[in-house]
Write a protein that binds this DNA or RNA. Structure first.
Lengths: 194, 194
DNA sequence: CTCTGGCTATAACGATCGTCATAGTCTACC
DNA sequence: GGTAGACTATGACGATCGTTATAGCCAGAG
């Protein structure tokens, strides 16, 4: 085989990320994910033999990589431009879904509360947040921001955007993101200036 | 009857809020909520005849009121003190649950993505966010902050704390909240000074 | 004491869940 | 052309979901 490298597997992952971002992890069944990706149910267990956890983990990582790629590219023009791209990206997801979709990474991070062990999907979410923060912090430092402040600001950006997206969905309004955007842009601009 | 006003009903709501904050709405069953509150399943439908939606709605409002009460009290000492109390409150929830609990309002806000109509629990979440923002913004304005800036900052505080709590849970570390706290305190202090 | 009505106990309803097993199809290579 | 192995089709498993129904309990009012 091999030629294939069918986008089938990737379609499932991307579709899973989308559905998780709308309804949360445990409200999204494997059957629905398969149907949404026009793949048979059997295929999901063929590609993801460890079941739902594996699929959720890959969906988180997929989203993480997708956002990180956009972030890396836009950060080349500077931290403010990177921030603006980050904001625009989430704005588009919320607007284009008519306030129904958000961030699948946050959705997974919130729904996993095991007693004994850490599920892989939760660990993946932590790594994705770290990755986004690292990209922002590195760019801030490269433009003159002090290290500690850069780290703090990067965390604030990721956290507040995640929270704001959820608030926009609840309120069915983009005003929270507008407000957060203005504050964050001023903060980032100030950090690389002084 | 009437004398009763048994705390039974309230116990169910409080327990539901706690469980939702740990596992999310759809991962929390009514049976488990009843058991957690040591109430029979029948009672749940007696007190909340509209079922899970009603219970979720009341859990959101219950949490909203509880936080708002703490916020109102501590804001009397000023915006910075109010912010600190807000941060301490969420810090305690995360730490005392060993990173397993978060904010039930956020959990509900994220898990509801209906096609046709807005579920009452989601509307309640929007109102709770609004309430928290209003309290913070009013305090900021009362201490000299310009109105627009106060509103923006209030949104940023609520959103970033919500997001940070989720990040702390995923990373199993309080570092994100430490960083966010420092940034927010500086911002609030700056806003009421100039 | 009787009776009323808030609360509980118990069982069931259809639906759907995650997961697995098994047999079948198809394609790529020898 | 035949064989291997990737993928699909189908159906079942036990469990659990939200919800409802019905019968029973038990305190307080008359």
């Amino acid at each position: 085989m091999a030629k294939s490298s069918t986008p089938s597997r990737e379609r499932i992952v991307a579709g899973a990320a989308d559905m998780i971002s709308r309804r949360g992890l445990s409200a999204t069944s494997i059957r629905e994910m398969a149907k949404h990706a026009k793949a048979p149910l059997g295929s999901t267990y063929h590609y993801f033999p460890e079941g739902k956890q594996q699929l959720a983990t890959e969906a988180v990582r997929y989203t993480g990589e997708w956002v990180a790629r956009a972030l890396r590219k836009e950060l080349e023009a500077g931290p403010v431009e990177g921030l603006r791209a980050f904001l625009a990206l989430w704005r588009a997801i919320v607007v284009e879904s008519d306030f129904r979709a958000g961030c699948p990474v946050l959705a997974v991070a919130i729904e996993e509360a095991p007693a004994d062990e850490i599920p892989p999907a939760l660990a993946a979410a932590a790594e994705v947040f770290d990755q986004w923060e690292s990209l922002l912090a590195a760019s801030l430092r490269a433009h003159g921001a002090e290290a500690e402040r850069a780290a703090q600001l990067a965390t604030l950006v990721v956290a507040s955007v995640e929270g704001t997206v959820a608030m926009c969905r609840a309120k069915r309004s983009m005003e929270p993101l507008d407000r957060t955007a203005e504050q964050l842009e001023a903060l980032v601009a100030g950090a690389i200036r002084g």
